[in-house]
């Protein structure tokens, strides 16, 4: 907490207002697109947002290389990233919490069990099971039902197990990369980081494979009742985060290979990306246990 005398306060900057405009166009564009309008505004906004972030990060990197960042300022970035990851944890907590509530409380009640079992009066004949293959709608309305359950679900011991191994391994390889960076062994750092990026890409490839199988062969979709809902929302948001993490690590790799960024004692950009990567890895372990293994 001791304060050095020169905390770098940046001059006026155009970056934030452009980032705001980009974010607004993205959000407004997404809403109009989803409501049946055109998708242009969304894509313009997303592109603007990505461009601004590019320049923003470039500015921060330039300031750091120019020696403007004191140890104290660097700690601000460390706190920033740490608390950002905590906010992500809470975002996933909402969805894990929903899964827990559905499985432990509301679905058994809907099936006539427990304290609130009278809910079953509205859905007579429905039985609570997990995975939920027959939705209340299907149990009551049979063929006329609008929301029917999946025909089958993903076997945790094939693709998901493989993906678990890939992602856990990538957490180890990114750690190796970090160790070699601290020892100033640039080539080893690049190689291990490259392997991590490949493992991330492989994970995403198999995840897409799994989704295709679910949609094309298993009847497991977003629309197939609460099982499909929780399955795709949890794994989908995780997949989106792996995509982000892979892009982040790829950029770190390019920064190292092309621009020779990072010093053994000064590389928080990489460290932040690797924290993020460990975080998506931990989320996956939670998914593998609570969605795949205990869900089958």
């Amino acid at each position: 907490m001791a304060s050095e005398s020169s905390y770098y306060v940046p001059e006026q900057s155009r970056l934030p207002i452009f980032a705001t405009i980009g974010m607004f166009l993205t959000a407004f564009g997404a809403a109009s697109w989803i409501n049946g309008g055109s998708s242009y505004i969304f894509f313009i906004g997303a592109l603007a947002m990505a461009t601004v972030l590019w320049f923003w990060f470039a500015a921060v990197i330039r300031e750091n290389m120019a020696g403007l960042n004191s140890e104290q300022l660097k700690r601000s970035y460390v706190w920033g990233m740490g608390w950002f990851i905590f906010s992500e944890v809470m975002f996933f907590a909402a969805f894990f919490g929903a899964l827990y509530y559905i499985r432990t409380f509301s679905l058994p009640w809907l099936g006539g069990e427990g304290d609130r079992g009278s809910s079953n009066m509205l859905w007579e004949g429905f039985e609570s099971t997990w995975p939920l293959m027959v939705t209340p709608d299907a149990a009551v309305h049979g063929d006329a039902a609008k929301v029917v359950g999946p025909k089958d679900i993903i076997d945790p011991w094939h693709l998901p197990l493989l993906n678990t191994i890939l992602l856990l391994a990538s957490s180890v390889t990114v750690h190796f990369a970090h160790v070699f960076l601290k020892k100033d062994r640039r080539t080893a750092f690049n190689v291990w980081l490259g392997i991590t990026v490949l493992l991330g890409a492989a994970f995403l490839f198999f995840q897409v494979e799994e989704y295709l199988e679910a949609y094309q062969h298993l009847g497991l979709t977003l629309e197939s009742g609460i099982y499909g809902t929780t399955f795709f929302m949890l794994t989908g948001f995780h997949g989106a985060h792996v995509t982000m993490g892979t892009i982040m690590l790829l950029i770190m790799l390019l920064r190292s290979v092309i621009a020779h960024h990072f010093k053994p004692d000064d590389h928080f950009g990489f460290e932040a990306a690797s924290w993020y990567w460990h975080f998506v890895d931990v989320v996956w372990v939670g998914l593998f246990i609570f969605v795949y293994v205990l869900g089958s």
């Binding site: 509301s106 679905l107 809907l110 509205l122 209340p136 929301v147 977003l222 197939s224 609460i226």
Partner: peptide, 22 residues
């Protein structure tokens, strides 16, 4: 609303009360 999930719809096995908890 837009993508057919069943978080808050009992017909698909969800629960409107889940909304209130979250």
């Amino acid at each position: 609303i837009h993508f057919g999930t069943s978080f808050f719809s009992a017909a698909g096995g969800g629960d409107p009360v889940l909304f209130q908890h979250v």
